[in-house]
Each structure stands twice: as C-alpha cells, then as structure tokens.
Design a protein around this nucleic acid. Structure first.
Ligand SMILES: NC(=O)c1ccc[n+]([C@@H]2O[C@H](COP(=O)([O-])OP(=O)(O)OC[C@H]3O[C@@H](n4cnc5c(N)ncnc54)[C@H](O)[C@@H]3O)[C@@H](O)[C@H]2O)c1
Ligand SMILES: NC(=O)c1ccc[n+]([C@@H]2O[C@H](COP(=O)([O-])OP(=O)(O)OC[C@H]3O[C@@H](n4cnc5c(N)ncnc54)[C@H](O)[C@@H]3O)[C@@H](O)[C@H]2O)c1
Lengths: 280, 280
DNA sequence: AAGCGTTTGTGAACGCGCGCACAAAGTCGC
DNA sequence: GCGACTTTGTGCGCGCGTTCACAAACGCTT
C-alpha cells in the first residue's frame, strides 16, 4: 500500500562497489538536481518479490552460473520476465544488454537493499509448539538472520535450551533486544496474549514484528507488523477448492490442453465432490 | 464520521499468486451460451480477507453481540469500513440498513462461502521440526479443518503417533486422501524434495497445496498452491527496518508503514540505529 | 568499423483494488 | 403515521501493479 513515504533513500548504502569496475559511472538515473530529493520508493509488491529473486540467485550461483538473462531468472523465481525487469529497474540498472545480469553482483546488490549485508538479530517470543520449531530451524541463518533470544513466561519452559539458546523470561527482553529497531521479534504466543506481549516488545524498542497469532495487532506508527495466518491460508485454499468443485468441466471439447509440467493432462473433477467430516 | 483516521492494517502481502491462474479465472463477460447464474466472481483481495472477517465474527458472537455495524466489524478485523462493506457486497446483501449485520447469520454465510460448512480434510506431509508443530496445533479444528493424515519417509518417524495420528509412509497417501480435490495437503519437507513430493501428491489427486518449503513449485493447471515463506517475511521486515534506519526523524505523520491506532501514537525513532553481527 | 542478433530498460495501456461520498433503505421516537 | 436519524450498498475517480511492445544498448562476428 501507499503507506510508506519513502523519504530520501539515496544510494548511500556505503557504496562498497568492490572490485567490480562498473565502468559506467553514469548510471545515476534520477539525478535530483533541483527541487525535492524525492523518493525512488521501491513499490511494496516489488519488495515482496526481492527475497524470491535472491533465493533464485543463490541457487544459480551455487550451480555455477555467472550470468543470467531476465527470462531465466524469472523462470527460476516463478514470475514473468517483464515483471522481473521492472522490479529490478526500481533498484537501478545492473544488467548488461545483450548479456543479462551478473549473478554475483546482482545478488550482492539485492542483499544490500534488503539489509542482508549483516545478519539481523531475531528474537522468538513464545517457545511452545510453534516457537520450538522456529527456534530449531536452520534455514534462517542462510537468509541472513540470527536467532539471538528465546522468551517465554512458563516456568516449565524457561531455562530449557532449544537450538543452543536458553529460554529466558520476558523480563530479560530488554537486555537482549539492543537498540530500538535493531532486532525483529517473532510472536508465537497464544492469540489472547499476543496484544499484551506485543505492547511490551514495542515498549522495549521493537520496530518489526512477525506475528503468528491469529489476532489483529494494534501498534503505534513506526512499527511494522506482518502476520502469518496458517488457518487463513487454508481457508483461502478451501474457497478455491469449493468453487472448483461447484464449476465442473466447462468447454468439454475445445479445451486447449496446454500442458504445464510433466503430469497427468487429463481433465479433472469428473463429477461433484463431497467432503467427509469424520476423523480416521 | 471524520473522527478517526481510517484504521487499516498492512496486509500488503495479498496473494502474490504466481504460477498459472486457474483457467476459469475470469472468462465471465463474453458469456457465449446462455447466461450462467453462478460465479459473481469474488475478487481475490476480498477472498483473502474473508477469513479475518470470520474470525472477528466468531469473537463477536462469543462476546454476545447479536448485530454489528460495518464500522465495528471493520475495526475488529483491522480494515476500513468501506472496504468491508464492498467486500460483503460481493457475497450478496446480508445487512440491514440502519442496524447492521446479524452476527450469526453473516458468520454462517461467510463460512458457507469458504466451504467451511463441513470440516475440510487436511494432510501434513513431512513430520519434522515444522510438521510436528502443525500436527499438534489445536487451532485448525476451530477454523474448519481436520488433520486426517501425517506422512513422512523417514523410517525413524513413521509409526510415531503425533497429535493422535500415526505417521504413515507416503505410499499410503492415496488411501487417505480420498476423492480428488477433497483434501488439502500441507507440504513441510525439505526444499530439495518439495517438488518431487508435490508431484506425487498431485498425481494422487491433490488439488490444493500449502507449501512451507522455500521453493517455487511447478504444478499443472487446476492445482492451487499457496506458499508460506517465513524467511521472506523476515526479509521484507528487514527491508523496511533498514529504510527506517536510513531515514532519520522526518515527517512522522505520513511516514510510518500502516499505522493502526487512530489516536496518540507517540512515534519515536530517536536516532539512527546500527545492527550488530556477532552472535551471543 | 559496421552489421547482426540478443537482451535490457521503460513508456504506455490496461485492469484491479481502494477509499470517498451519497442516495436508498431501514429503524426509532413521538 | 411521519420525520429524523442511522447504516448499508455502490457509483465513481484514482493510484498501484501488471503486461505488452519496442527502441536503445551491448557483444560478437566479419
Ligand atoms: N503450532 C502451530 O502449528 C501453529 C500454527 C498456526 C498458528 N499458530 C499460532 O502460534 C501461536 C503459538 O502456537 P503454539 O502451538 O506454539 O502454542 P503453545 O501453547 O504451544 O505455545 C505458546 C507458548 O507461549 C508461551 N506464552 C504464553 N503466554 C505468554 C506470555 N504472556 N509471554 C511469553 N510467553 C507466553 C507459553 O508458555 C507457550 O510456551 C498461537 O497463537 C497459535 O495460534 C500455531
Ligand atoms: N522448522 C521451521 O520452523 C521452518 C520454518 C520455515 C520454513 N521451514 C521449511 O519447512 C520445511 C520443513 O522444515 P523442518 O524444519 O520441519 O525440516 P525437518 O528436516 O525437521 O523435517 C523434514 C521432514 O520431512 C521428511 N521428508 C524428507 N523427505 C521426504 C520425502 N521425500 N517424503 C516425505 N517426507 C520427507 C523428513 O523425514 C523430515 O521428517 C523445510 O522446507 C523448511 O525449509 C521450516
């Protein structure tokens, strides 16, 4: 959404520009020159896709590719090539026409933009069923995140060591979180406590929250909240499944069988389906 | 009416919806034959919010409310009231002017639209760190889902009982999944195996997949895939956090991302922040 | 150096979703 | 029974995001 008024956002990112002799020092597109410093403002939709591009680039680099075309990278990331090029254009021009993008250089650049130059500190609050799984997840490190604290308020859980970290009481939160905005909090407490816990985290300086509890969190301006609601995801899938079931095969004959991937090409949904409700 | 600023959750993450849109996506206008009665075509953005409305309605019903105004329900769901009314209008008119909506009736109606009349069958594939947490999660049942099967291929895991269900080998998948499209599969296997496992599930009749593995899944038309990528969520938060850090005290009014509170909101952002990279 | 094929970057059209504002429709008070 | 008030439902304008299509830019070959 339009929410963020990206303020300046100049290319101040320390401009490491290591060895890469980009030759063209003239790719400073929006030369402000006059008037307001304005904001290149990367669109939200683009930001949401950058992680996918980064993942695809990591895979390509590991596979030995040195350059990729927008077509190939888009394929790997599961998007259209035009969309990918436009997305990258918001970050600046880092491709070479006629060749493509330098895998390593583009990876570095996107990682910089995502703040992944150094590892972000992550704290997990609520080490229950879900929090335990998250604490033991090894996939965060490779994406630029380091879990530096686990918190709970259950005496039976406090003190246990999970994933190499000791579970602490919430009172010690302030000691671990550090500077305001320097850590991301993952909320994995029961829904009825989520708001209260969130308030404490914000009071302690938290500016970024990933919420797993199925509740609407109220936070002051300046705090960023993203939610992951598994039940909602299932319900959205259920909605589509139900619609699919209600609308049987249309165009019985003329249906163009544009196969996607090696898989059964046969038309599905032979007849109406029914769901059962008993448990096995 | 002009009192409070529109409450408005972030919710930017609406359906990236990669892959191929279902063939029947939106071929409504040029109705070739006779006028088809069905398919008012609920917008995707609306579908993604229906679960939130349903949750809010459940809470209201439990609190004893018999009716709600669009304003109150929107507040509870964390959206704007105009948006909510427009969303509901896509489902048909079920409100009473001058009064509001009947809580129980609206809940029933939305639940019907989401196919929640009966409990959907859910199978979890990959009972590791994450799959274990999901299998033991009690929050699915109240949202209309019943876990009916757990699958893995690790002999050390097969046979174990988790959440009252025995973990089965993938070979038995076909016996449990039932009619094509009648169950939703939750993928919680390592990324490098996700595609292969997904192919097997689809071949066995699965039409809805919720993917936790950080990979792009290729599926044939007619199969609906939604992904939950925790690392990406963190990276998006990191992007905003970094931008916030780069933009010091500016205009707090329009700056922050999606404020929710309609009142005081004492934004601080005292000074620039820095991240540290060493682990504790 | 010039031509040729390739690929990027982007201008422009298009469609979707959002929020405003208001008339219609209903309730409540008298 | 009637007027005033409340709240829904929606028409409309607008901005964001996606897609198409193409000229400019680049490497490679001759
Ligand atoms: N488990 C899942 O697979 C799953 C799936 C989707 C959503 N969720 C949501 O994630 C959240 C956690 O789920 P769970 O299954 O891990 O629940 P859980 O009950 O197993 O764990 C919750 C943990 O939070 C701790 N806690 C409670 N109040 C606290 C407080 N005030 N401060 C600090 N810690 C506190 C508890 O001690 C417990 O350890 C819930 O909101 C749930 O709805 C879980
Ligand atoms: N644990 C988390 O908190 C977390 C967070 C984000 C994403 N993920 C993703 O979720 C997935 C699972 O994560 P995890 O931590 O549970 O991993 P895990 O290794 O703990 O569990 C994976 C399970 O899948 C099983 N498996 C492997 N190959 C299989 C196959 N071919 N068929 C059936 N089962 C198979 C394994 O036996 C194991 O039990 C991974 O893709 C991971 O990236 C996990």
């Amino acid at each position: 959404m339009p929410g963020l008024t990206a303020v300046d956002e100049d290319d101040v990112s320390s401009a490491p520009r290591d060895g890469a002799p980009t030759a063209d020092g003239a790719d400073r597109p929006p030369a402000p020159g006059t008037a307001v410093p304005e904001a290149p403002a990367v669109p939200e939709a683009t930001v949401a896709r950058l992680p996918q591009y980064l993942r695809a680039l990591s895979a390509l680099a590991e596979a030995g590719s040195r350059t990729v075309s927008s077509e190939a990278l888009a394929e790997a990331a599961g998007v259209g090539s035009a969309k990918l090029r436009k997305d990258l254009s918001h970050l600046g021009s880092y491709g070479t026409r006629g060749v493509g993008y330098d895998v390593e250089q583009l990876h570095r650049h996107i990682a910089d933009r995502l703040g992944q130059a150094a590892s972000w500190r992550v704290v997990i609050v609520g080490v229950g069923n879900l929090g335990h799984a998250l604490a033991g997840y090894s996939g965060f490190a490779s994406r630029g995140f380091t879990v530096v604290g686990l918190f709970d308020d259950d005496p039976a859980v406090i003190g246990r060591v999970v994933g190499g970290l000791r579970v602490r009481p919430l009172e010690e939160f302030g000691e671990v979180v550090g500077e305001p905005g320097s850590a991301i909090a993952v909320l994995a407490v029961p829904a009825r406590h989520a708001q209260a816990v969130c308030d404490r985290l914000v009071a302690a300086g938290t500016r970024s929250v990933l919420n797993f509890a199925p509740t609407v969190l109220r936070v002051p301006d300046g705090v960023d909240v993203r939610k992951v609601d598994l039940a909602s995801e299932l319900q959205i899938l259920a909605f589509h499944a139900q619609r699919r079931a209600a609308a049987p095969a249309h165009r019985p004959s003329a249906a163009g069988p544009r196969g996607a991937t090696g898989a059964p090409a046969g038309p599905l949904l032979p007849h109406a389906l029914h769901r059962v409700e008993e448990v096995v």
